[in-house]
Nucleic acid binder design. Structure first.
Ligand SMILES: [Mn+2]
Ligand SMILES: [Mn+2]
Ligand SMILES: [Zn+2]
Ligand SMILES: [Zn+2]
Lengths: 141, 141
DNA sequence: TGACAAACGCAACTCAGTTGCGTTAGAGTA
DNA sequence: TACTCTAACGCAACTGAGTTGCGTTTGTCA
């Protein structure tokens, strides 16, 4: 079963319908590898003649996040960004000048070790972490 | 020279005056070890009979950030938080249920190694990183 | 094909932060 | 101490991201 089919199965188990809007919105995430904001989504849907009200976009993003299809990312400005949660865990490089975003894979074994230590010391259950790198991209530095 | 005096010297070199408001605002940061929002600052200033207009708070926070006295932190909600930049580099544990925030120190040697590798591979100049841990605190888990 | 809940659009709203502009007040100088 | 210059301040109006309530439409399943 491909990723898209898997997603549609997840929707079904949550009694979420496969509307044209929802399908188009999920496809937007498949077409971009960078985190997208509500406005990004709106713009992309308009481009393909599937314009929707912004309330729908926000509600949809929240629903997809709740059921784990997308995940929220914070890139340092006041917006929420989202990306497909099925991508393997990774972090981002964010250019402070041109705002370009790049996915970054890294060996997190040391980090997971630290998490384990912190959980023990602080009696805090760590569920997730956010790690983003800010700086200047090739073009801007 | 103590920290406060050092800060006041920095202000002077940037031609920033030592107003009652600015002094009180900086002292608020010294009294709390957790990141503070503009509203937190406003509330604390009101408590000590030094209430100021919110525009002043926002402008002041931005100025202090520009000259490096405070640094911005993002804790997952839509607000900006700030803390004294003179604190040694550290990260945070954030409880997803009660929102309590705790400073966390960790060995970042492995992380700095990864940064070096990324800089080389991606031709991206990393200037800073944000690393926050989300989960459930002792009381909430 | 009918019923029912999910999805949708719209307008009005909230909340964090910003802008323009006129007034007030530190701080260096006379 | 008074003078001057500009940083700092308050206020009102605004912006932009996201939210809410509610009435209407549409998918899905029987
Ligand atoms: Mn990504
Ligand atoms: Mn801290
Ligand atoms: Zn760049
Ligand atoms: Zn808690």
């Amino acid at each position: 079963m491909g990723y898209e089919e898997e997603i549609f199965t997840v929707l079904k188990t949550h009694h979420l319908r496969l509307t044209k809007t929802r399908k188009a919105l999920i496809e937007v995430f498949f077409r971009y590898e960078v985190p997208l904001s509500a406005q990004d989504i709106s713009r992309e849907l308009s481009k393909i003649q599937r314009a929707v009200n912004k309330t729908t976009v926000y509600r949809e993003l929240e629903r997809l996040r709740e059921i784990g299809i997308i995940g929220a990312v914070q890139l340092g400005d006041r917006k929420q960004y989202y990306e497909l949660a099925l991508r393997r865990h990774h972090h981002h490089l964010i250019c402070l000048r041109c705002a370009v975003v790049e996915d970054i894979d890294m060996d997190e074994r040391a980090l997971l070790g630290q998490e384990k230590r912190i959980q023990g010391e602080k009696h805090f259950t760590i569920l997730r972490h956010s790690l983003e790198f800010f700086g200047l991209c090739k073009m801007c530095s």
